[in-house]
Amino acid sequence: MHLDAQPCMQTGVNNDVVVAATATLDYDAELMLRVKEGDSASFATLLEKHRGSVIHFVYRLVQEQAIAEELSQEVFLRVYRSRSGYEPTAKFRTWLFRIATHLALNWLRDERHERGQERLDDISADLPVRQVSDRRPSVEQQMVGEVKVQEIRRAIAGLPEKQRAAVLMHKYEEMEYSQIAKVLDCSESAVKSLLFRAYETLRARLAHMVAA
């Protein structure tokens, strides 16, 4: 969990956590400024700290691990390339996710253009329960779990791009509305509206699963 991703304004988290979050933010920016000065160890620290969240976020957006890693490499490569002109005007993590979102959504647009909805169809094609061939209970449970995850993946993949990115940042990266707004380059109220509509769609699409 990232301290700077805590929704402090809404949860009423105590001041110590807020201070710690600010310190974390400043530390990231400070590290990036050290990278600017040529300190490669600081880049390694930033990579170590944000690698997981960036890859997982991109993976959930594009839903292909190899592509997610490739795009995440490009994210960190761009961070490295930008080191000489870096100015800590925004939170480092917001900037990082802005790059990641931009790259992932561009990839999705190109992919969709080239292959239509083939990929999504592939995912849905994997869904039928006939895949459950092993009759041992534990494996069955495992398979049912996998089917459930596939349904969630498909429901999220079916959301419009911005809604999808917003849900992933909100749910899995625990970002505040203001941070998501900066990443998506829209207003905070627009993000709230995006998220409500996205969750509304998910509630409808996954209703059968949730009720079970």
């Binding site: 890859i55 997982h56 993976y59 959930r60 691990q65 779990g145 459930k148 995850v149 969630i152 993946r153 999220i156 749910k171 899995y172 969750y199 998910l202 509630r203 996954l206 209703a207 699963m209 949730v210």
Partner: peptide, 15 residues
């Protein structure tokens, strides 16, 4: 229903 969706989303772990 939202709480149920929130819990369901937890089952999707990243690779």
């Amino acid at each position: 229903r939202q709480a149920a969706i929130w819990r369901a989303l937890d089952t999707w772990e990243a690779a």
